[in-house]
């Protein structure tokens, strides 16, 4: 028997699919048409983000090839070692606060450098899954209603992100 988290991981998506299909059938919908409509939107979204992703992957690729990312992680390692956080992930965590797609570029770099299933790769996956871009989200949402004083939003956002990063590191670095 797998441990509960692994069991959950294996079963979650299939169970959701089953529920979705059954509810589509009971609602007597034309589900295949619904699926293809949604699929069309999904593909459109993926194509729409290609230019952004290409630009940022080029940026990360250049940084990696120049040796700067290694320089940065080596320089940071004495700081992060003490708290048990992998210095290789510092650039990604910092960038994630500002831009999700730029952080994705760095995540993919982590995957190709250290492997998706390594401890670092797993931790990176978890961090990306459990945090959101702080400054981008705040500026879009608050600007839309002309709020200038954001009070404790930033402090709360940082608290939540820090908790997410800590939990990810604990889970990811322990298993791997």
């Amino acid at each position: 028997m797998d441990n509960p988290l692994v069991f959950f991981s294996k079963g979650l998506i299939p169970v959701i699919l089953l529920i979705v299909i059954l509810s589509g059938l009971t609602a007597r919908r034309n589900l295949y048409e619904d699926f293809t409509e949604g699929a069309k939107d999904g593909i459109r979204t993926a194509v729409k983000i290609l230019p952004t992703l290409a630009g940022l992957m080029i940026g990360v690729g250049i940084l990696r090839a120049s040796g700067f990312l290694d320089f940065l992680t080596d320089g940071l390692s004495f700081l992060t070692e003490k708290i048990g956080f992998p210095s290789q992930l510092v650039p990604m965590v910092v960038v994630k606060m500002f831009s999700s797609s730029a952080a994705t570029g760095l995540l993919l770099d982590v995957y190709s450098q250290y492997g998706t299933d390594s401890r670092i790769g797993t931790t990176a996956s978890l961090i990306m899954s459990s945090t959101e871009t702080i400054f981008y989200t705040m500026s879009i949402y608050f600007m839309s209603v002309k709020i200038k004083k954001t009070r404790w939003t930033l402090a709360g956002a940082l608290t939540a992100s820090l908790a997410g990063v800590a939990a990810s590191t604990w889970l990811g670095m322990a298993g791997g």
């Binding site: 509960p4 988290l5 692994v6 069991f7 959950f8 991981s9 294996k10 979650l12 998506i13 299933d117 797993t122 996956s125 978890l126 961090i127 899954s129 459990s130 945090t131 709360g156 956002a157 608290t159 939540a160 992100s161 820090l162 908790a163 997410g164 800590a166 939990a167 990810s168 889970l171 990811g172 298993g175």
Partner: peptide, 17 residues
């Protein structure tokens, strides 16, 4: 395979928030 851990990590961050 990360799904289970991702749910835990997301719950921790949301709980803290």
């Amino acid at each position: 395979s990360i799904l289970g851990m991702a749910v835990v990590a997301t719950s921790v961050s949301t709980g803290a928030g």
